[in-house]
Structures are given as structure tokens and as C-alpha cells.
Amino acid sequence: MLRSTQEDDWPRVREFRIENATDNPVSWAATLEETQRIPDEGWKMRARRGEQPDTTSMAAIDDETGRWLGMMCAQIGDAHGPEPVLTGVYVTPDARGRENGVTDALLASILSWAGSRDQTVLRLWVAEHAAPARKYYTRNGFVPTGRTQDLRVLGREPHPDDGGLIEMSRPLTADALPGAPEH
């Protein structure tokens, strides 16, 4: 099941982001320690993103167990432009892969949300060393824009092996959205 998050979800959002920070801190942009120090009000604000007009927060939840399998968020604009930006992407390791469809379903939901806002592109930032994520985004129509950022923008001193962040974008035209007929 896919659904927007709401304020009452804050304990689950917190638990899920702690899992994310444990599995891959660069993707969450916070260390485990930083994540654990976020106050309850901060988690409530994050959970409310699914209820706001200029943000969205989608959770993929196992119908039988209620376990959260993945989450993607987006917002209208950032410091680099007014276009929608994909943020907060995390899928649990056992739910990753094409055969599971979790990531694809979440992305389709975000693309639909962004496309409904009369926008023409969706942007994202991905870690340079995150080859599986970059491959996934490329397979789904994202291309590098040429913009990069140092990991210091996340508030941390990068390790030399970390690389940086790469901006990617994809069109939101009707024929580029999931389910559109191929030409």
C-alpha cells in the first residue's frame, strides 16, 4: 500500500529514518547520532509533509504486516531552482530491486505529484558513489545536469572516498510519466 504520511505517523517516520541513517547516512544526510537527537516536533513536521500543498511524503507499507518498506519525499523548489526536488529516498534492503516494485511505485507517485503542479522537470541530488541509485535514476529517465555539490552542504566533513553529490533531472511531460505509451 502507498499513502501520504500524516502527523500521527511521526513515530514511524522517526523509526524509519533511524533505520535509514544506520544503513546509509549519506542518503539521509544525517548521522545516526544526529537523527536520534531530532526532537519529537521535528519528526511531526517531517510526517506532516504528506499533508502540505508544496511538499509530499509517500510511504510504502506492507499490507499484511504494516511494516514500512520505503519512503520518498519531494518539495517544490530549493536553493537551486523552483522545480520540484525529490528528497528523503529510502527503501529497506529487503524491499529493493525491480522484482519488488517498491521503489518504482514510490517514484511513480512522486512523478505524478510533481507533474500535477504544472512543473516541467523533477530534480534530485544523489551521492556520486551511490552507483546503484544513479543507475536506477538513469534507467528512469534522469540525466546529470552538470551541477555538483560537496558533501559539506550536508553539514559534515566528507571522507575522501565519499565523492560529492550530483544533481540529476528528468522531464515531467505527459509522455515521460510512468505508464505513458512508448513512441
Rank of each mutant, 00 (worst) to 15 (best):
P53C: 06
D104C: 01
R152K: 11
T22N: 09
G81R: 10
A21M: 11
K44V: 09
W125E: 09
E157I: 12
A180L: 08
G101V: 08
T31K: 06
K135W: 03
P160H: 06
I61A: 01
W113Y: 04
E182R: 12
A59Q: 00
T5L: 15
L86S: 02
W10C: 13
P132V: 03
R139T: 11
R134L: 07
M71W: 15
A114P: 01
G50I: 04
P132K: 11
F142G: 04
T173P: 00
A47K: 06
R37Q: 15
R12I: 14
E99M: 00
A174K: 13
L122Y: 03
P11E: 14
G70E: 06
P53Y: 00
S169Y: 06
S4A: 14
G70T: 06
I76A: 08
W68Q: 01
L107N: 02
T87K: 11
R48S: 15
P84W: 01
P39Y: 04
N20I: 00
G179M: 07
Y136A: 08
P39F: 05
T31S: 15
G81H: 09
G77F: 08
R139Y: 04
R3I: 12
L2K: 00
R156A: 12
M72Q: 13
D94G: 06
T35V: 12
G66Y: 02
G163Q: 12
V91S: 06
E167M: 10
P171W: 12
V13W: 09
Y137H: 09
C73L: 12
G66L: 05
A127G: 14
L151V: 09
A130R: 05
E33W: 03
K135C: 01
A74C: 07
R156Q: 13
A79V: 06
V85C: 07
V91F: 11
E128M: 08
R139D: 15
N24I: 05
R14Y: 10
R46W: 04
Q149N: 10
L107R: 00
M71F: 15
R156V: 14
T138W: 02
D161E: 15
D94W: 14
R46G: 11
G101K: 09
P132R: 10
W125P: 05
D150C: 06
Y136I: 09
E157V: 13
A176V: 02
S4V: 08
P181D: 13
V102Y: 02
D175I: 10
S109E: 11
W43D: 05
P11F: 15
R96K: 15
C73W: 00
R17L: 15
A21R: 05
R12K: 13
P158F: 07
Y90G: 01
R170G: 03
V102D: 01
R123E: 10
R17I: 04
Y90Q: 02
G146N: 12
A95T: 07
P53W: 00
R156N: 01
D104Q: 11
E182K: 09
W125H: 05
W28C: 13
A74G: 10
L165R: 08
Q75P: 00
P160Q: 04
G115W: 05
R48N: 07
F142T: 03
G66I: 07
W10R: 10
R48K: 14
